[in-house]
Amino acid sequence: MKIRIQDKEFDTKEITQLYPAAVVKTGYKDETTQVSLEWLEVESKGKVEVVGFAIFVHLGEEKQHSFIFSTREEMDEEAGRIARQIQSSRA
């Protein structure tokens, strides 16, 4: 089955991980890292600077694609589109 995320198409057989995350500053220069949305909501308690949100797609050990969004709402909308593609293939 194929799914489309923004302008890229992926064969689901090749996807080893697909997940949303927040992108935050690490505090070292302009370095950023990803953190789980759960950690951001429960543990961060406003102690980190969020610079965006992303959907990450891993294809095996080597390849990773990142789709960056300015807001959580934009990311959630794209996640909904992905979910609908997967659901419609099962119908």
Rank of each mutant, 00 (worst) to 15 (best):
E9Q: 12
A54M: 14
K29A: 11
L40F: 09
Y19M: 10
Q6M: 14
A54H: 05
R90M: 14
E9H: 07
V57N: 02
I68D: 15
A79Y: 08
T33D: 12
A22K: 04
A91D: 15
T32N: 01
G46H: 12
M75F: 08
K8R: 15
E14I: 12
E9R: 10
S70P: 07
E77L: 06
S66Q: 12
Q6L: 15
I15E: 00
A54F: 08
V48A: 09
I15Y: 01
T32A: 03
G60V: 00
I5K: 07
R90F: 13
I3M: 02
T33M: 14
G80M: 10
T16D: 00
T12V: 15
K13W: 04
K25R: 13
F53T: 05
A54W: 05
R84L: 08
T33C: 09
D76M: 15
I5Q: 07
F67A: 00
R72M: 05
I55N: 00
E61I: 11
V42F: 09
T26E: 07
S36F: 03
I68Q: 15
Q87C: 09
D11A: 10
T16C: 00
E31S: 09
S70Q: 14
S36W: 03
L37E: 15
G27L: 10
E74C: 01
V24H: 03
L18C: 09
E77N: 11
T32I: 09
Y28H: 12
